[in-house]
Design a protein around this nucleic acid. Structure first.
Length: 656
RNA sequence: GGGCGCGUAGCUCAAAGGGAUAGAGCAUCGGAUUUCUAAUCCGACGGUUGCAGGUUCGAUUCCUGUCGCGCCUACCA
């Protein structure tokens, strides 16, 4: 609603400027005045025009206000401050439309969007860093759905890399396990925890004796080759861990449509097809000298290096920056496989995966996985118009290489629709690390945060955090709702825990490193998910006590204007205005790939509602008209809050 | 060395393609309820936005320089 009216205003101003001043501004800046009593929209237009028109801003603003005319839905324009032009809405009209949940039609951009997120190495349990990725990715998917877009959710599985090889080495060389024993272990409910520890042990074992690294190389080679016992073990282990990851994410309502695996990128010769294209397109070069001799490389401009000091003017010499794509032993690195995958994503590779069903969610939805030979009947994946890759900032370089390869092949249109949804990592505070029992160096103790490391087994496992959150919420629910059954209390505690966790991961903007700390993550007060959930529960309680079904409540034909006008109306109007912004915020989140704005929106709505709740006892209101108005306010805010939380993957329990 | 990012209240973070008095939460202190149950609300305290310049009517935001921190800079993924 807010967005719709803003666009209408912008269009009107644009037309007006063209007509009255023969001006075409590249962008009409519209913002919100600092206080709602100054109006709903502010145009700093006059400041910008002051120089062009050689007149003081106030004078220009005055002129514009006098002659701009009327815009449907708007009350009037006013001059404010040093030259702002503020616009006032017809509050009653906007409120009536909002109460009736009138949503302006929006025309959707055509084409399917592919969102890739999670992509956890299937060799150990998921940790909090993976949670940030999955929650950001899943929320972005929900944002796109809210905006009416069609989305494919993919989770790329690197099941043939060194990380998987390392755990296989652990089973074979450290534990000397048989296949049957590993199969037995893989049936354990938390097999991924077992692998977590084993992975750390293997890393340690490599450090003890560099000779041990030979088994990694051999194992990796066997896995890549396929069709042998080692590869079968890798498949067994990685598939079991993958299943665990899906279960963990399913606890948070995070679902995937398709799991493309690196083994198929190799065995279905995706790479060979990409390699041929890259060579033919002149993107890859065979290096015949220097340190990359014998490799296929991508050339990426010149860099200055200090390595060769002789013969250079300033002691530096320009050297070609090369990215090795194919190693001198003929094997292809991760980036090469990623290039092939991305050509497939855009339907440019000329090959497809085999597909089979892998995991069925409780709601009946299927998650598919790649396989060498698959089912004949399967959904069509890939071949999309736009892609978003939710991958942490450390991989920006690799993402750029993929992008450059696409451009190098002449796929500029596709490259323009390739977005690296970049975000910073989750690290542990030194205090948190100490709490977990890790020994810290003096250097680490002085740091703001310490990077999580799967290799060292250093981190907070996702399921542990979820368990802790549920237990903590359960304790509180138990004490508040002793009359409910244990199953009911657990269900409520689970909703609260998910709300807390998802909100926590979303409230930080993407470029901010999250310094994880249990106290903050386990908080259910202040700027948290449960705070927002609680506001909804309170709103629901009003209706329940009043014997009204909140979703059925209707204020059709009601005249809101008398209650929203003037000084007295400002306070509650602020709440209505905030409630009108949900779709506006969603659009902002998508345009900026920043879900944190939605978290802020939900919190602000909840905050305003709690204030309103305290100041206006609704059910005791004697004036019937005013009571209806207050109920309508609660109904609209409740609806928008539920909507906003749902986009973040947060549901609201019946009681709290 | 080069690239990317960050530096805002005691702590953790906002401020959305420059805008009106830089806002929240936590912590601390002081208050509010036999209510639509307080996972709540109100108030107080708390700021030279790392530093120095520049552009602008206006800079936390843009530019230059500088200091500090993190990440990337593998024939790992």
């Amino acid at each position: 609603m807010y967005h719709h009216l803003e666009r209408r205003l912008a269009q009107h101003v644009r037309d007006f400027l063209r007509r009255a001043y023969d001006l075409d501004l590249p962008r009409i800046v519209i913002e919100q005045p600092p206080r709602v009593d100054l109006g709903e929209y502010a145009l700093p237009l006059a400041f910008e025009l002051a120089k062009k028109l050689r007149k003081p801003p106030r004078k220009i603003a005055e002129e514009i206000v006098a002659s701009i005319g009327v815009v449907p839905g708007f009350e009037k324009f006013e001059l404010a401050g040093a030259g702002y032009i503020n616009a006032r809405l017809k509050r009653g009209e906007v409120a009536a439309a909002l109460a009736a949940d009138e949503r302006p039609r929006t025309e959707n951009a055509p084409g399917k969007i592919l969102v890739e997120h999670s992509s956890i190495n299937p060799n150990k349990a998921a940790h909090i860093g993976h949670l940030r990725n999955a929650i950001l990715g899943d929320t972005f998917v929900r944002l796109l759905h809210f905006a009416g877009r069609e989305v494919d959710v993919q989770n790329y599985i690197d099941n043939t890399g060194v990380q998987v090889a390392d755990v296989v080495v652990g089973f074979l060389h450290l534990e000397k396990k048989t296949r049957a024993e590993i199969e037995q272990l893989a049936r354990q409910p938390r097999f991924d925890y077992y692998c977590w520890d084993l992975y750390a042990r293997v890393s340690h074992w490599y450090e003890q004796d560099k000779q041990n690294l030979q088994s990694r190389t051999q194992t990796l080679h066997a896995i890549e080759q396929g069709g042998n016992e080692t590869a079968a073990l890798a498949e067994l282990m990685s598939t079991a861990v993958l299943r665990r990851h899906l279960e963990t994410m399913d606890r948070l309502e995070i679902k995937y449509d398709f799991l493309p695996r690196e083994s198929e990128i190799l065995h279905l010769h995706f790479w060979d097809a990409a390699f041929t294209k890259l060579k033919a397109g002149g993107v890859l070069f065979f290096e015949t000298e220097g340190k990359n001799k014998g490799c296929w490389v991508m050339r990426r401009g010149k860099i200055l290096t200090t390595e060769h000091k002789e013969g250079a003017e300033d002691g530096r010499v320009a050297e070609e920056d090369q990215k090795v794509i194919v190693r001198s032993n003929g094997t292809v690195g991760y980036v090469g496989k990623d290039i092939a995958y991305h050509l497939w994503k855009f339907g440019l590779l000329g090959r497809d995966f085999g597909y089979r069903k892998f995991y069925r969610y409780p709601n009946g939805r299927d998650c598919w996985i790649s396989t060498p030979v698959g089912a004949l009947d399967h959904p069509h994946f890939g071949d999309v118009a736009e892609i978003y890759n939710v991958i942490d900032a450390r991989q920006a370089e690799a993402q750029n290489t993929v992008l450059e390869a696409l451009r190098g092949l002449g796929y500029n249109r596709q490259a323009d629709h390739y977005r690296h949804f970049s975000y910073e990592m989750v690290a542990l505070t030194p205090g948190c690390a100490a709490e977990l029992g890790y020994e810290l160096s003096d250097e680490d103790k002085g740091r703001a945060h310490i990077e999580v490391s799967g290799r060292k087994g250093f981190g907070v496992k996702a399921d542990d955090l979820i368990d802790t959150l549920i237990a903590s919420a359960k304790k509180e629910v138990d004490s508040r709702h002793a009359q409910l059954s244990d199953a009911e209390r657990l269900a409520i505690a689970t909703q609260i825990a998910i709300g807390a966790l998802r909100y926590f991961m979303l409230k930080f903007t993407k470029p901010s490193v999250i310094a994880f700390d249990f106290k903050e993550a386990l908080s259910f007060e202040g700027e948290t998910g449960p705070y927002a959930q609680y506001a909804v529960v309170r709103a629901t309680n009003i209706f329940r006590k009043g014997g009204i079904e909140p979703d059925q409540f209707s204020a059709e034909g009601f005249d809101f204007s008398q209650y929203l006008s003037g000084e007295a109306g400002n306070e509650i109007w602020e709440l209505w205005l905030a409630a009108s912004k949900t779709s506006y915020i969603v659009d902002q989140c998508i345009a900026t790939t920043e879900p944190a704005y939605l978290a802020k929106h939900a919190f602000q709505l909840a905050q305003l509602f709690n204030y309103f709740y305290h100041r206006h006892p609704i059910l005791n209101e004697a004036d019937e008209g005013r009571k209806k108005f207050l109920l309508a306010t609660a109904a609209v805010v409740r609806r928008e809050l539920i909507r906003s939380l749902a986009v973040m993957g947060i549901t609201v329990p019946p009681v709290m």
